[in-house]
Amino acid sequence: MTRLLSIEDLAVATGSGRPLVRGVSLTLRAGRILALLGESGCGKSLSLLGALDALPPGLRRMGGVVALDGRPCAGRELRGGIVATVLQNPREAFNPLLTLRAHARETLEVRKAEADARLASALAEVGLDDPAVPGLLPGEMSGGMLQRAMIALALIREAPFLIADEPTTDLDPVARARLMDLLAGLRARRGLGMLLVTHDLGVAARLADEVAVMQGGRIVETAPTARLFAAPAHRHTRDLLAAHAMLCADDRPPAKTATVGAVA
């Protein structure tokens, strides 16, 4: 079984050679969740797209190695079967003329009835259990419905790795908490290895084993989650945590929930 997906020294530049991403190294491990944080425009999406050889026209990957259990491989070998992907803008990722059911049948290449059944159960897992949903067109779904539909479609192939770019931006707190539980369950049951790009530090705190922080096209800090929150080393990490703390400062004091103090 696949255990390790490593991205090493990745660089992305414009056609004229202006660097947008430099020296990015990230390691995904089976059963582990890595969160990638960083301010808007710092190069998170381009890093993912670069690693998967899915850059938009006009941009080039300038170097770097992506390897599966140590064996270098091209991004297009990974997409779909080995790495399931959830892109940042769900509405752009769908064909507006195809229902969700048609998308699933196209993705899965199995008998229709089986594709339909697997879609239904994946949709139920992300909280879209209304039987009308598989028959909807993308334009007939709300932002959060589309985001969850995209996650469901990514999960039905049962790839060993998942790369998801801001997968919770359009989800309400209940749907978000439910997705957190689903992903934590997949990590435990199936050993799914994940890279989650998120600006929600609550998501990183709840789910990530390790956090990488990016700024200006480079990774500036990588640390186990508890250490990153307790003792951020880089200035940029401290700024992000300070903004997060300020926003959370007016929270109601937590009810009887965990204040165990296991971490110093």
Partner: peptide, 17 residues
Amino acid sequence: RALFDAVLPPLPPGMAA
């Protein structure tokens, strides 16, 4: 209530605010 109660805590489990 369901929305307010589901908001993710700010810090990793086990870390007190």
